[in-house]
Design a protein around this nucleic acid. Structure first.
Length: 221
DNA sequence: CCGCGGATCTTCT
DNA sequence: GAAGATCCGCGGA
């Protein structure tokens, strides 16, 4: 991020690589409520993770890793804590958080975020003036808004310009677990996790104001 | 709000 | 050849 280092209030909350090197279903569920961040030209684009899906090589025919390693999915088989970005439908990118240890092909698809900072830039990237709740409510929209494409495939999620910030855990009663959507194979697996009422999680939670202030101040002198 | 077709490239059958 | 971890604009209710 332009050579400047992140303020301590931010850097100490970055989820470490070990967070991702665990059971994919646990990581998927634990990611809800956390804050995904990309620093572009000194500006923080940030959004709360509100919808994810888990994909795993074991018994999951819908996973890109199910039939083994290829040029496209190589990142899925690396050690957890990096990004896996793929291109699909001839025009869209989708991003995943890679999980588990090296050699295991698994990842968590980021399906939706709730924008927190950098909304004007997200609108510019999307080429639309959508309201915040419609700006990043799909996997390809998240990538477009955050300016993420295949050039970010395999990049570390532990900083300095791509990371996920810890945030207070969400209560079980706010998490909905359902089958994944938009797939045909292994469509019965309940590996989709959705955070209900994203607005209820805004700001009031302890420590969030400090995080958002820190992110917004990156540009300021 | 809902359903439908087009866009357009990689991977699999 | 066809389908795919999708999105958008259009037309209709």
């Amino acid at each position: 991020m332009d050579g400047k280092s992140l303020p301590e209030s931010i850097s100490r909350r970055i989820l470490p690589g070990e967070f991702y090197r665990r059971s994919t279903l646990e990581v998927a569920c634990d990611l809800l409520g956390k804050i995904f961040v990309r620093i572009v030209e000194g500006e923080a684009l940030a959004g709360r993770i509100v919808e994810v899906e888990a994909y795993h090589e074991d018994g999951d025919e819908a996973s890109h890793s199910f039939r083994g390693r290829t040029a496209r999915n190589a990142a899925m088989f690396r050690a957890g804590g990096i990004l896996y970005v793929y291109f699909t439908y001839g025009m869209h990118y989708c991003m995943n958080v890679v999980t588990e240890r090296e050699g295991v092909g698994a990842a968590v698809l980021i399906r939706a975020l709730y924008p927190l900072t950098g909304i004007p830039r997200m609108r510019r990237n999307r080429g639309k003036a959508d309201p915040p709740e419609r700006l990043t409510d799909g996997p390809a929209k998240c990538c477009r808004a955050f300016g993420i494409d295949r050039t970010q495939d395999g990049l570390p999620l532990t900083g300095p310009d791509l990371f996920v910030l810890d945030a207070p855990g969400v209560e079980d009663r706010h998490v909905r677990r359902t089958p994944r959507i938009g797939i045909r194979r292994s469509a019965d697996l309940p590996w989709r996790f959705v955070l209900g009422d994203p607005e209820k999680y805004a700001a009031s939670r302890s420590g969030e104001e400090e995080i958002l202030c820190g992110l917004r101040s990156l540009l300021s002198p």
